[in-house]
Design a protein around this nucleic acid. Structure first.
Lengths: 320, 320
DNA sequence: CCCTCCCTTGCAAACGGTTGCCAGACCAAG
DNA sequence: CTTGGTCTGGCAACCGTTTGCAAGGGAGGG
């Protein structure tokens, strides 16, 4: 139905190869011929078929971006930044959501292979082994995960966790609950590692949990019962759910329990109390990941971005 | 680099056409041959190149989904529902964000054409004319917009707006501010139409505005100054920004001003006060849109989904 | 024992482009 | 008027897969 390169060739009276060159190698065709071709293309409404082009050139000018849960407000800034950066480099980004399911994740990557020039894998749930195998078929950049020999963009979670714990310690908290995220999450492991080597604090660990509001709600009772005066949550969604759950039990934040999250998502800023959190440089990570993917010379480069503690209203002095 | 159908053919000692059939028409090949082919394919790690397949078959088993702003929490439930529904019908969904920019939107659609079997256009910012032209190249289903002869999924905004206005009137409000969304938004127009024919209410209209928290923040002063005791906002994001802006001016919601939003997004449920809102059936819309797109027999079908008023904490009796 | 018919497989042409190679046209210099 | 170089555009192969057509072989019926 749609016009092909042949139609344009016929109408403008030249060979298809000339039409092709008129578009992708203008300096190889006579300006007069070229404008004749372009005119014909224009009134036929011709658009090169990108899939066909990809077949011969091997380049699609598309990028894939895979996230575990698109409804987690942490991702949109990352996605938007990646899209903007890609657009500036003449590429488009296709986003897909895995529903936190590794099988879906693998399936999606397989589908994307050959339809994109590279894939941004954000907080993957797949094992390193599987990812390494898939990397033979399509270039990856991994965000929030360190994988041997693969370009990664990391956020300095350890530093953020340390800042958060210092902040709490400074407010007089001693017994602190650590509400973890999904099993196999690199971020979650980093947090636990920092916690493990923290001095003079009494840490209780809960999890693994779904990194969602629901996950937080579900943990509220246990956390309240454990005697901690402060909580460090895997992410803001969990933290928000926790605050909600505690409120439902009549426990006030920060008067009775302090809560810190990770990510610095929008709802955390709108919530009352406004959430104290460790801000993750999501937009910067998105841009950086695209750069890494497109320069592709950067074999196995690892970039680590700094995090920052943002103190708002959900943390206060420990009740004595 | 990656194995092709030829490699499999060579290894298993058959013609490429046989390999092809072993995958896509098993009944046409001898079971013994087939298992030999499958074995060869398996240890070569062969995966059919979907782009190449699409070239001959014209089918990609991919769907495109275009939204104006992926960071608007209204969209993720719609996206997830669409993905789940598509997955059940053996298709994948690629999401792209237009940044509310019609030019980007058009560009994205062009890119998607021929790489997908159809496109879900959610709250498009493009003119009807342009959309109709683009529809010649790829099948569309439009969400939140009515376009002649094109399958659409609508939400009954008029009904929701009427419910909201009734609710406010019942609480004694007479002067009500209508904080509109982007120009050219079908939803925004519907709201204004309902407002225009409402009896006994004194309505002041503001806008167009960006449908974001920032848009709401920016309008807070004007709304406060106009003497309205209640506000109906284009969406929850605007409403949330408004509440925030009013709070910053020392104005309490709902004690001094009542606020109603649209969409029923998660942050609205977490916010204090919890937002009264008109719930939009986003997930149902996503599922329905995919169905419409895939059955494709449903030329120009229009589906309208009901909305519901959810009364929470941001509305109260009018101050007298 | 021959003739059909069905099963299985190979052949080759498409799908819509890109690109290395080659030939003709043209121009300037010798 | 030849020679050599530069432009320009055509030819054809190729990318990976599907599919209509036809040929070979074996089995069953007459």
């Amino acid at each position: 139905m749609a016009a092909t390169i042949k139609d344009v060739a016929r109408v403008s009276g030249v060979h298809v190869s000339t039409v092709s060159r008129a578009f992708s190698a203008p300096h190889l065709v006579n300006p007069a011929t070229r404008s004749r071709v372009l005119a014909a293309a224009d009134d036929l409404g011709y658009r090169p078929n990108r899939a066909a082009r990809a077949l011969t050139t091997g380049r699609t000018f598309n990028l894939g971006l895979i996230v575990a849960d698109i409804s987690n407000p942490f991702f949109p800034p990352l996605i938007k930044a990646a899209q903007a950066q890609a657009r500036g480099r003449d590429h488009h980004v296709f986003v897909a959501d895995t529903d936190e399911d590794p099988r879906v994740e693998e399936e999606l990557i397989r589908t994307l292979t050959k339809q994109v020039d590279g894939v941004l894998l954000c907080s993957p749930r797949l094992s390193n082994k599987v990812i390494e195998r898939l990397a033979e078929d399509v270039p990856f950049v991994v965000v929030n995960r360190r994988i041997r020999g693969m370009p990664s963009v990391l956020m300095n979670v350890a530093q953020g966790a340390a800042l958060a714990l210092d902040h709490l310690a400074g407010l007089g908290h001693r017994r602190i609950a650590l509400v973890c995220g999904p099993a196999g999450s690199w971020t979650s492991n980093e947090m636990q590692a920092v916690a493990a080597r923290s001095q003079g604090l009494d840490l209780v660990s809960f999890g693994p949990n779904q990194p969602t509001e629901g996950g937080g709600l579900a943990m509220a009772a246990e956390v309240a019962a454990c005697g901690a005066t402060a909580v460090l949550a895997y992410n803001d969604l969990l933290a928000l759910g926790l605050v909600e759950g505690l409120a439902a039990m009549g426990i006030k934040v920060p008067e009775q329990i302090s809560v810190i999250g990770f990510d610095d998502i929008l709802p955390g800023r709108l919530n009352r109390p406004k959430l104290t959190t460790v801000a993750m440089p999501a937009a910067a990570a998105g841009r950086m990941a695209v750069d890494l993917l497109l320069q592709s010379g950067g074999e196995g480069a690892t970039v680590t971005l700094d995090t920052a503690l943002i103190v708002r209203e959900s943390t206060g002095r420990a009740r004595t």
